[in-house]
Write a protein that binds this DNA or RNA. Structure first.
Lengths: 97, 97
DNA sequence: TTCGTTATTGGTCATATTGCCATATAGTAA
DNA sequence: TTACTATATGGCAATATGACCAATAACGAA
């Protein structure tokens, strides 16, 4: 893989995370599995909008789902995405100086 | 600051990074200061496009510039953004499993 | 089967992002 | 001043993204 291809992949990953609602979802999932409904309660707005955010995260391999009856539970596929929060917090903190 | 506001800020930061060309720029700057022209050579495309990417990074406090004659040098304002690369690499590696 | 609940998908519109062209600005040198 | 180099900005068209509404699908219970 060329360096450029690597940057393209990384950019796609970042884009998949770079949204307020999706960050909320990831943050919540970092504390454990959670149903789509609960995530909707958390994020607000239209239910289909939240579902689409989940679909996007799924498409990028950030979350996985499992169905139990009518309920779909989501969990982080790669818990290390939480490192992004640590990074982002650090950067925002730096900026204040 | 509410949790939501925090997510909004983090999302903006991630968006500012979430582009192939801007990642290339940040990666290059992580190895030291560099002129706009050199960054253009690196990234390719139109000069004004690269300039706009730089302006965006500047607007988000990710890079700083300094002018020396007609040349403008850029550097990372918050070197810790490099942590994002480490994170992203980890996540992409995890996905392959 | 039909009903009710939960979640996803399709359609559409508004807005944001990106890239290129042309132009403008900042600085140096003659 | 003019000419030249290095960068930045304005404008526009193409594309991408996000939010909502409506319709659909998946499942359990009756």
């Amino acid at each position: 893989m060329t360096a450029r291809e690597m940057f393209v992949k990384q950019a796609k990953m970042l884009k998949a995370l770079a949204h307020e609602s999706r960050l909320m979802i990831v943050d919540r999932l970092s504390r454990g599995e959670c149903s789509a409904g609960e995530l909707w309660d958390l994020v607000g707005g239209d239910q289909s909008t939240v579902s689409k955010h989940l679909a996007l995260l799924r498409a990028h391999g950030i979350v996985e789902d499992r169905r139990e009856g009518t309920t779909v539970y989501y969990r982080l596929l790669t818990p290390c995405v939480c490192n992004f929060f640590t990074c982002a917090t650090q950067v925002l903190k730096e900026r204040k100086r």
